[in-house]
Design a protein around this nucleic acid. Structure first.
Length: 483
RNA sequence: GCGGAAGUAGCUCAUUUGGUAGAGCGAUAGCCUUCCAAGCUAUAGGUGGCCGGUUCGAGCCCGGUCUUCCGCUCCA
């Protein structure tokens, strides 16, 4: 276990040292649970996102992508249930340090009372909760001498509101106050655009809408590097289906998504399903695809059958009809007609997938050389198709015209994929630097190149190399990064 | 939020009853070098996480605070 922990520490250090991830505002001692992606990390993250986007939109005829704004009308979050369910008044007992939800604490106390007194207390609590009267709730607890079940004391902190949504102000919102929220999930941007996309895209059920983007949650405890952050990026796809067929599609996406992760180089044995026992208010089935992170099995992606909850809620709150007319014929030969579609959601944490790829890729290798001495390297075996830099072009020496040939090759390759040019230090040192950032291919230009236009290409994963015509380099790398 | 551990150069660490900070690696510039980090020369980098206190004097003692990791807790 301690080895695993150390390994995780090393991955974190490596990410910082080679420009993958920095702590946000590090110059000012950092901001808790917020991270920046560096020059390497941003490219890797983009490559992962692009793969997902392609697999969803380009490879599925019936899925289209959108990009909804982070700010949304405040009523969206009432309709979705986030305003009511994403926020709870909490109170801590100073002696036991145990934290309670205020309503749970009072309800537990009510059970010890007779019916009349209990009902009166509940009525009082509901009134205070509705009024957001936090001080009133505290004095209610104190005047009723409600004790902590562990410390048996009434030594309470103030009641505090824990809302997982970040709020801010906007200029002009007609109704409600001028408080708006930073979205805690991207899904709602898809639901509120359901009709727009369906009509303008002439989409026929079943079809999906995909989206990637930032979401924000004011987690009380956010930790484990980029696993749980306050600002994070989701890659979500909402698949709209005919009511009654949702389990079929739920199973389809369950399989499809797991296979996709495997196609990203994640070994099958590191992935597993975890069915939700307790379902959220909107779901009739839910599971996580979990990955074995260095700190244990954790959720990587969620597959949820969300029923017609979201579209119905938005229909209700917006007072607009959100339905689909299905012309397909049923068993009786009649069109299915109007209905509110059911939704199967797939939702991946992009940052978590990034962490998955990085923790799988990071390796410390040791071996014995032919002369009997020990050698080692740190290598990031990032799959070639998502590696930030695909090819390093290295003149063996920085003289004798070798850099000129190398820059020719640079010009030929760089319009097609990311290349890196380096002429400093011994060749072995340059190879190790490329290993550390995860560059899958290195090409070296030497004196023989001047004679016969061949170069050596060196493979990161095996450290083997072969001699090929320089004119083949572009084609060969393109071939390897497309699979 | 509670408890534990930690924070000194880009990285890993030294500086031992408190006396104004060093090394290795790395980086940069150059030299040497015909394929897997190890040769030579030079240079740059730290108000010791931050703020305050004790002291003639604090990296070291004390208080607070920020951040990270671990264990709880939390995560509709």
């Amino acid at each position: 276990m301690s080895n695993i922990t150390n390994n995780f520490q090393e991955i974190i250090s490596h990410c910082k040292e080679y420009g993958y991830i920095f702590q946000s505002s590090e110059l000012y001692d950092g901001l808790s649970a917020v991270y920046d992606y560096g020059q390497m990390g941003a490219q890797l993250k983009k490559n992962i996102r692009d793969e997902w986007w392609k697999s969803m939109t380009q490879l599925h005829d019936n899925i289209v992508g959108i990009d909804a704004a982070i700010f949304m009308h405040p009523t969206v979050w009432k309709a979705s249930g986030h305003v009511d369910n994403f926020s709870d008044p909490m109170i801590d007992n100073k002696d036991s340090n145990k934290r309670y939800r205020v309503d749970h604490l009072i309800e537990a106390h009510v059970e010890t009372l007779d019916k009349a007194a209990g009902d009166a207390l509940l009525a009082e609590m509901d009134k205070l909760l509705a009024a957001d009267d936090l001080a009133g709730l505290k004095s209610l607890i104190e005047t009723n001498k409600i004790k902590c079940s562990i410390s048996k004391t009434c030594n309470w902190t103030d009641v505090r509101q824990f809302n997982l949504m970040f709020s801010t102000q906007i200029g002009s919102v007609a109704e409600e106050a001028d408080t708006i929220y930073l979205r805690p999930e991207t899904a709602q941007g898809i639901f509120v655009n359901f009709l727009n996309v369906q009509k303008t895209g002439r989409m026929k059920i079943p079809f999906g809408i995909a989206q990637t983007g930032k979401a924000f949650r004011n987690e009380i405890v956010a930790r484990q590097f980029i696993f749980r952050m306050r600002e994070f990026e989701q890659m979500e796809m909402q698949f709209f289906v005919r009511p009654g067929t949702q389990m079929e599609w739920y199973n389809y996406w369950k399989e499809t998504r797991k296979k996709w992760h495997e196609s990203m180089g994640i070994p099958t044995e590191k992935l597993r399903y975890h069915d939700h026992v307790k379902l959220a208010h909107y779901a009739d089935a839910a599971l996580d695809i979990e990955f074995e992170f260095p700190f244990g099995w954790k959720e990587l992606e969620g597959i949820h059958s969300r029923t017609d909850f979201d579209l119905s809620q938005h229909a209700k709150y917006s007072k607009k009809k959100i339905q689909y007319f299905d012309n397909d014929l049923n068993a009786e030969g009649k069109p299915y007609g109007n209905y509110t579609p059911f939704v199967v959601e797939t939702s991946v944490g992009l940052d978590r997938l990034f962490l998955t790829i990085v923790s799988l890729s990071y390796l410390e290798e040791k071996w014995t050389k032919e002369d009997g001495t020990e050698d080692s390297r740190v290598v990031m075996k990032i799959p070639a198709k998502i590696a930030p830099v695909k090819l390093a072009i290295l003149p063996l020496l920085k003289k004798d015209g070798l850099p000129e040939i190398a820059s020719q090759l640079m010009n030929e390759c760089k319009p097609h994929f990311h290349c890196f040019y380096e002429e400093k230090d011994a060749i072995g040192k340059r190879y190790r630097r490329m290993d550390a950032i995860g560059t899958p291919f290195c090409v070296t230009i030497d004196h023989q190149t001047k004679e016969d236009n061949t170069v050596t290409i060196r493979y990161r994963d095996t450290m083997t190399q072969e001699r090929i015509p320089m004119s083949e380099v572009k084609r060969l790398v393109m071939e390897k990064i497309c699979c």
